[in-house]
Design a protein around this nucleic acid. Structure first.
Length: 593
RNA sequence: GCGCGAGUAGCUCAGCUGGAUAGAGCGUCGGCCUCCGGAGCCGAAGGUCGCGGGUUCGAAUCCCGCCUUGCGCACCA
């Protein structure tokens, strides 16, 4: 048991002796100012009213009844309005380092997830272009949240959802036709809403290769109706319907386009060191037989499609109605602003329906918890998706799924904002950003702020200041600690806690560092519960600063044995914590730089 | 208009779910290299926590009302 646990237990006993309710849970916190002790509690202030006493008097009664010898408390005092402050003996605190060294790579883990299955969906970019910087923030957030949950012993599945069934995919494929014409020497202006990016040219070339054609001209003549060639005309408005009709009737064409974009995106993700467990295609929800996965939840015919099964189940639940030839769901009954159309007058589904079917699939695949990482522009959809799941009345919890919505990234370059738009073709890709400032720096910058805050990413600053970058500062602290062992020719694995005099770590910088290291597991648990990786980023920066300060002021290798051994132990424990924290954020912990 | 975020140092942001004298990085100014890595360290200046009420021992944090700002409010995705 750590000192804090013992103090908490003693407080509980004392409070009960004084007649406090059995349900109270004394809270210990770190005073901001170390002069106020190692631990502090506001228990006396909390109990003052129910027990009808003045806080300070009650604090004194509590203190009189505390038995703290086992906890290594050297002093207790009552301060301010009624805080009880506890001062630990140097050794009692520092002995906690043995836990860090003993647990090593596992230090900071907890079991709160108990092996429960959770799916974390993130990035989920439409396969209509390369990943841009906004996706980068989401990739980092989602990956770090996944890691946090893994450290809390959740069984995590990282999932990427491809919207490959909507009109934007038709527009992408149509844009490839325009590029094919261009390659064949028949340029055409892009109609509104089509994709003009240079990467579409690559897709066009891939299609030529896929069809075994020598060049674009040959391909166009062989496979496309003459009116699409239209070498004599350049009227996008007249040609667009014919082009769209062509791609609609040539699924292979769409398939090649999606495959190519997926390859590009996969390359970006790989450069980021990001691996997904599952790629879920929206189009699969329309495939006959796709209801099989959700049949255990919805019942019914496993041979139909997931979207059809979902519609049928919603109709059967009695929460739907027809109006103006469309099929509506009464999502208002489940907390949405207004009712939603599921099936349009023309018989096709709105995007709302596959969203619901997709989340039924998550539930049906055994994920008792689902977390979606998306941009704040998606917040309008949260209420209706949850409402759709509730309307099914199949026991899915009200708060399913959870959302972590992040604000958008504003890119600055040369002192002004860089506008990026896929359709206009002006993109700052994730790949470009990584190659300019480095993978570790991108990961750190994108995880150092809480999701809801807008993130201004100044490319010039990130590049120009790469040496002042916080991530280097943290990595440097880690490398320096490694340097001690390297220079001293000491194997950290040879350190033995039984040879360490923990009472020797008396310097203020040492005591502060020890406390920070011991706080890591609680910090990690809090970050996991709140789904806030930025707490790890801040913690690492603070702890790295404590390391640098300590390192600069107190030497290790030229000290007498008692001090040498205790400081080596502290250095090793510090290194473990920095490395583990960096690991959560997916950032390297180099041993030298 | 309605809904969801955000307003904290010159700039970019933290603030551990209500605690003690509100913090960090960058920037500015001033110091420190015979020393385990100067990619570092020490110090200074810099604040009406958007505004006004309320709740209580105690509010940047919770409640109410304003102001500014981002986003969302389709039989588009």
């Amino acid at each position: 048991m750590m000192p804090a646990d013992l103090i908490r237990a003693a407080l509980l006993d004392a409070a009960r002796e004084l007649g406090a309710p059995a349900t109270i849970a004394p809270v210990l916190e770190r005073p901001r100012d170390p002069a106020n002790g190692d631990w502090s509690t506001n228990l006396a202030m909390m109990l003052a009213k129910p027990l009808g006493e003045k806080p300070r008097a009650l604090a004194q009664k509590l203190v009189d009844r505390l038995d703290l010898d086992a906890a290594g408390v050297s002093k207790v005092d009552i301060a301010g309005p009624g805080f009880i402050n506890f001062y630990l003996a140097v050794g009692a605190n520092a002995r906690g380092l043995t836990t860090i060294v003993a647990q090593g790579d596992a230090y900071g883990r907890n079991q709160s997830g108990a092996g429960e299955r959770v799916v974390v969906e993130f990035v989920s970019a439409n396969p209509t272009g390369p990943l841009h910087v906004g996706h980068g923030r989401q990739a980092v957030l989602g990956d770090a949240i996944s890691a946090l949950l893994e450290w809390a012993e959740w069984s995590v599945s990282r999932e990427y959802y491809y919207n490959d069934a909507g009109v934007q995919i038709q527009n992408l494929a149509a844009s490839v036709v325009v590029r094919l014409r261009e390659l064949a020497g028949h340029p055409l202006e892009f109609p509104e809403g089509w994709y003009q990016g240079e990467y579409v040219l690559d897709v066009a070339r891939a299609y030529i290769a896929d069809r075994g054609a020598r060049n674009a001209q040959e391909l166009l003549e062989r496979e496309m109706p003459p009116e699409l060639l239209g070498s004599f005309q350049n009227d996008p408005i007249a040609l667009a319907p014919a082009i769209l009709e062509f791609v609609r009737t040539h699924p292979d064409f769409v398939r090649v386009a999606v495959d190519e974009l997926r390859k590009t995106q996969d390359r970006d993700l790989k450069a980021f060191g990001l691996v997904f467990d599952t790629y879920f295609l929206e189009s699969s929800l329309y495939a006959p037989g796709s209801a099989r996965a959700i049949a255990p939840v919805l019942g019914g015919d496993a041979s139909e499609s997931a979207v059809d099964a979902t519609v049928r189940a919603l109709v059967a639940s009695g929460h739907t109605y027809e109006e103006d030839g469309a099929l509506w769901l009464r999502t208002e009954e489940f907390g949405d602003d207004k009712n939603r159309v599921m099936r349009k007058r023309d018989g096709t589904y709105t995007y709302f329906l596959p969203d619901v079917a997709y989340h039924v699939s998550k539930w049906g695949r055994g994920f008792t918890r689902a977390i979606n990482v998306q941009g704040t522009d998606h917040h309008g959809t949260t209420a209706r998706v949850r409402a759709g799941l509730q309307a099914l009345e199949v026991g899915i919890p009200k708060g399913y799924p959870e959302w972590v919505l992040h604000n958008l990234v504003k890119l600055m370059k040369g002192g002004e904002e860089v506008k990026f738009s896929k359709r206009s073709g002006s993109i700052v890709t994730l790949e470009e950003l990584i190659s300019e400032v480095g993978r570790d720096a991108v990961r750190y910058f994108f995880s150092m702020r809480k999701a809801e805050s807008e993130l201004v990413f100044d490319i010039d600053l990130a590049r120009a200041q790469s040496e002042e970058n916080p991530v280097y500062y943290i990595q440097m602290a880690h490398a320096r600690l490694c340097g001690i062992f390297r220079v001293g020719g000491i194997d950290p694995a040879s350190l033995d806690a039984s040879n360490v005099d923990f009472d020797a770590l008396v310097e203020p910088e040492e005591r502060e560092l020890v406390k920070a290291l011991l706080d890591f597991p609680a910090l990690l648990a809090g970050a996991a519960e709140a789904l806030e990786p930025h707490r790890i980023a801040s913690y690492l920066l603070d702890t790295a600063q404590l390391v640098h300060t300590w390192y600069h002021k107190h030497h290790v290798l030229d000290q007498p044995p008692a001090i040498l051994h205790s400081r080596l132990f502290l250095a090793h424990a510090s290194r473990i914590v920095l490395r583990n924290g960096l690991a959560v954020l997916g950032i390297a912990a180099p041993e030298r730089m």
